[in-house]
Nucleic acid binder design. Structure first.
Lengths: 249, 249
DNA sequence: AGAAAATTTGCTGTTTTATGCAATATATTT
DNA sequence: AAATATATTGCATAAAACAGCAAATTTTCT
């Protein structure tokens, strides 16, 4: 195995799980601990990760951007984000919504993938700044303090002039019958606009939210092209969604 | 578990609940109390939190000045920001530029002051989110990775439709003769638009930048209404600016 | 292709760091 | 003041980092 490959593997591991142990990775790659240590040292001096006693941690872990350790159900969300990343193709023009799941998606975009990403979300935009090959376009507007995204008429207006290859969106609540719903009216308005502006709308949603609903409706479930949960697509919990014309991932 | 992970967890806990008990966290992390104690001690000397008898508390808890990291010439910038804050009046509609000085201004806006703040800067917008009485409006656009602000035609276009009471701006270089100049052309374009959109343009600038210049020109010094440095307005270094019709603060 | 040079890798012994434990001291509470 | 909880110190152990060296591999050059 080439040094490059090894270092790539280490980096992937770090980006994915925020950390690695030298011993683990040495065993997995079947090289001596010294080699791994040297690799990590190099990657550290290249500022690709941060070497610490016993292993290495992601830069995101230390830097101001996203010290996301208290995200609820982080593992599930990472799982979802990984599936979403697999949809991305070189040169795609995509929209990434706010919320912790979408933030994970932003975080897991591979360094070398060239993309144009639109977003309404401040944290997502911040996260994307660390991706050298991603052009970041923030759609501005009045900022919602809780959701940390742009909302309001001017925002919606801007959205009408764009078409995304994929719109990756989250939702507060989802139900096979009542579709996507939210607690907040303003948020529903921008989400509607996003879905309209997306050739394909991809819903990222942890299974815990399935079969829940709230006051304001964003769209019918049919408006969603692909739905990603942390579950296996064949899981029984998804049966109700299988009837609709939705791709499950 | 790596030491850094542990410390991260402790920090999160502190930031979240403003305090932790050493015994609690030791049990949760399944390490000895000594280890936690040592971690907390380290974090304390790094000024990430404050160690107290039996546990640790958040910095925000002790000092009103938030946990600021490693800004260059921070004290000067705080000084400038404080003067700028004194210009703010209840209900003002202002623009706040990017850069560390302006970020300090955003940070120092009093909690109870009611304002409408426009900005192009992601960090400034994030900072403003913690101000309950500030309406934050982010002007969107293509995001400059280095400057972390929105740039480009659509951004400039949006700026033409607004008038701010005050536009608080920074600059890369300033000179009494050559005016405000920058290293980056795109940035000059948006700054021009901001100055146009401001009834009064207020320049925030540490004295170190006085009498320096660069390639692209933002505006003449006369376009600036008020100039704030960390120096006393009577300081000799400001003599060259006194001739112009500028208010020094 | 084959030799020489440069790089990479694994191994050795040594040094440093991290952690837990116990004894003692200090602070806090009742 | 006594009882309890928390801090400090020194020490022992294990794990990890480091430095130097030699074997193995890759690259470069003829």
């Amino acid at each position: 195995m080439l040094k490059e490959e090894r270092q790539r593997t280490i980096l992937n591991e770090v980006e994915l799980h925020n950390r690695v142990l030298l011993t683990d990775i040495a065993e997995r790659l079947d090289v001596s601990i010294d080699t791994v240590r040297r690799d990590v040292k190099e990657l550290d001096t290249e500022n690709k990760l941060r070497k610490v006693h016993g292993g290495a941690i992601s830069l995101a872990f230390t830097s101001p951007t996203a010290p996301n350790n208290n995200t609820y159900a982080l593992q599930e969300k990472i799982n979802i984000a990984e599936k979403a990343v697999s949809l991305l193709k070189e040169g795609s023009v995509v929209f990434i919504d706010g919320g912790t799941t979408c933030l994970e998606l932003a975080r897991l975009i591979p360094q070398r993938l060239q993309l144009t990403c639109f977003t309404l979300s401040l944290p997502v935009a911040m996260q994307l700044l660390s991706k050298p090959n991603v052009e970041v376009i923030l759609i501005g507007g009045r900022i919602s303090k809780e959701a940390q995204i742009a909302i309001g008429a001017s925002t919606i207006n801007e959205l009408t002039a764009i078409k995304f290859d994929y719109g990756f969106i989250g939702t507060g609540y989802v139900d096979s019958l009542h579709g996507l719903t939210e607690f907040d009216w303003d948020i529903v308005q921008v989400k509607k606009a996003v879905i309209n502006a997306s050739k394909k709308a991809v819903l990222l949603c942890i299974s815990e939210k399935l079969n829940s609903q709230h006051r304001y409706k964003t769209c019918d479930i049919n408006a969603i092209n692909t739905m990603i949960t942390e579950l296996d697509p064949s899981n029984n919990l998804l049966n109700l969604f299988r009837n609709h014309d939705i791709r499950l991932l």
